[in-house]
Design a protein around this nucleic acid. Sequence first.
DNA 1: TTATAAAAAGACCGGTTGTCCTGTTTTGTC
DNA 2: GACAAAACAGGACAACCGGTCTTTTTATAA
Lengths: 202, 202
Amino acid sequence: MMIQDSKQRPRRTNNPQAMRAQILDVAADLFQRQGYNATSIQDVVREAATTGGALHHHFATKKALGLAVIAERVAPEVDETAVQPVATASSAAVGIRKVFNGVADTLERKRAVSGCPLNNLALELSLADPDFREAVNGVFDRWRSALSLRLHADRPEMDLSRAHDLATLIVASYSGAMAMAKASQSAEPLRACAVQLEQVLS
Amino acid sequence: MMIQDSKQRPRRTNNPQAMRAQILDVAADLFQRQGYNATSIQDVVREAATTGGALHHHFATKKALGLAVIAERVAPEVDETAVQPVATASSAAVGIRKVFNGVADTLERKRAVSGCPLNNLALELSLADPDFREAVNGVFDRWRSALSLRLHADRPEMDLSRAHDLATLIVASYSGAMAMAKASQSAEPLRACAVQLEQVLS
DNA sequence: TTATAAAAAGACCGGTTGTCCTGTTTTGTC
DNA sequence: GACAAAACAGGACAACCGGTCTTTTTATAA
């Protein structure tokens, strides 16, 4: 029989920020791939290689974890992949084409098309809980507003309500194209929408 | 103590078609309002005022129930509210406007915007199960094909790939507008897209 | 009337869910 | 170095999940 050194029990290094970030990363990934309801807390615990106690310390409830994922992972990702490229491109039309085709490229590099994280959570949770709905709606709104502003900056002659409606169409077609891409497991809907939107904006 | 007539126990009338239809109706409603995973089969049993045994007799598993809901409730509903109006309208543009604004009217009459049933199930189940994905994708595809055909019939000079891409944009913007409508609990995104799409089609 | 199968009822099972609770270890502060 | 608070471990818990099972009731056709 082996003699175990009882003092050499598994060491623990307290690193709350890294632990919290790790949990958020894993949860964001699982929520996107499986959905919120289909992902159990234990799934997150297992994949994050932590314990229930640690998770509960950082996020008291599953809902709190979900809201944090939206605010600290989904919203920044939307901003990074969709809002900023349009803001920094030479024109709104160019930026939008880059976003659509860029996302399509990314999807084709991956095995599975798991869709837009915002869209996924939006449809699953908007009706379930007002807090979720507000969080999701805020992300949609910031995106739409940024687009609307850019469109108006490009063409000052276009009135604001027209720019707002056009921004809505662009966000909606992106969101819908991602839904179709997920259902067909193909990036083709995104490419098709990119081509047509470019005609609209020219 | 009352003497109960044991022979007068709750009567049961076998009506398999009605029972099956009732279960499908309730399941379709609950799946749309709460989502597939958030709805337990007991929820369906309770709301349909039936029993677990009866439900299991008609649908062996929850997945079978889900597939039946898509094939026998969601698909016909999409056909009725989105495909046929476009097919019978005087022009594709008119039909599309009628669909968008008609759905917007309906949403505003209701209390809550629970979104497009196809979209809801598509995002929740496409990745979870290949059978679900295929069922959902089929509905999307029939809708897109019908639109594409109508666009080409309206304007024979438009080549087929352009018609297909345009149909994709229309379906995507509908789907996405419904997602935004659900998140914002407002029909406004649908109206905005209707206006912009009409400009595209004119 | 009787035979037979379909339809429906309702209890039951193992497994899993999200949450909470009680300890133990680490960290920061005086 | 003492001590309080934070960070983490790990299990307890009741409630519920989807699915199976057996039994009873109903409809139908010979």
